[in-house]
């Protein structure tokens, strides 16, 4: 059984609290910094579960690159403090609550139907060799397909944001 102690609980709380701050804080820059702290909290959880590799990738990619771009763009646009991010119209509020409840329900069902796959012990330390052999031999095609998907998305973004030249 995974021995849960105070460190694990406080890491989860850390990530959860900053996740809530991201949604409810009125200042976009503070929200972006909370997102960063949430990513770091996730990194800590991965570390406690025994995967140093995942922690490093989490910090390098999410905290070091993605969150920094969010902060950077928000600062560049110099956004004023918004009134609130909570939708005020009744319908949007209702739809939001339904969406949250539905997602929570789906996740609960998935987790409780697949308890066999839950980590009950610390993960074995996976070496980078085994990891990348799996990625580039066993799962080569799905991996390459996902990169194609990202490339397609990039091209689409450039196309959408491009100024249309009048005929």
């Amino acid at each position: 059984m995974l021995d849960t102690n105070l460190t694990d609980v406080s890491l989860c709380l850390f990530a959860a609290v900053f996740a809530v701050v991201v949604v409810f804080n009125k200042n976009p820059v503070v929200a972006a910094f909370s997102l960063l702290l949430m990513f770091i909290g996730f990194g800590g959880i991965y570390f406690r579960l025994g995967s140093v590799f995942l922690t490093t990738i989490q910090i390098l990619v999410y905290a070091g690159a993605i969150a920094i771009l969010f902060v950077f763009v928000l600062m560049l646009m110099n956004l004023e403090e918004t009134k609130t991010f909570i939708p005020t119209k009744n319908f949007s509020l209702f739809a939001g609550i339904v969406a949250i409840l539905a997602m929570f329900g789906i996740l609960t069902i998935i987790i409780f139907n697949n308890t066999d796959y839950l980590a009950t012990d610390k993960l074995p330390e996976v070496s980078m060799n085994t990891l990348f052999t799996k990625l580039f031999e066993t799962y080569l095609v799905p991996f390459e397909l996902s990169t194609l998907l990202l490339l397609g998305a990039t091209v689409a973004v450039v196309f959408i944001s491009k100024k249309r030249i009048p005929q």
Partner: peptide
């Protein structure tokens, strides 16, 4: 390298 990437914050 990952720790260095946090430098700009």
């Amino acid at each position: 390298f990952a720790a260095t990437a946090l430098g700009p914050y």
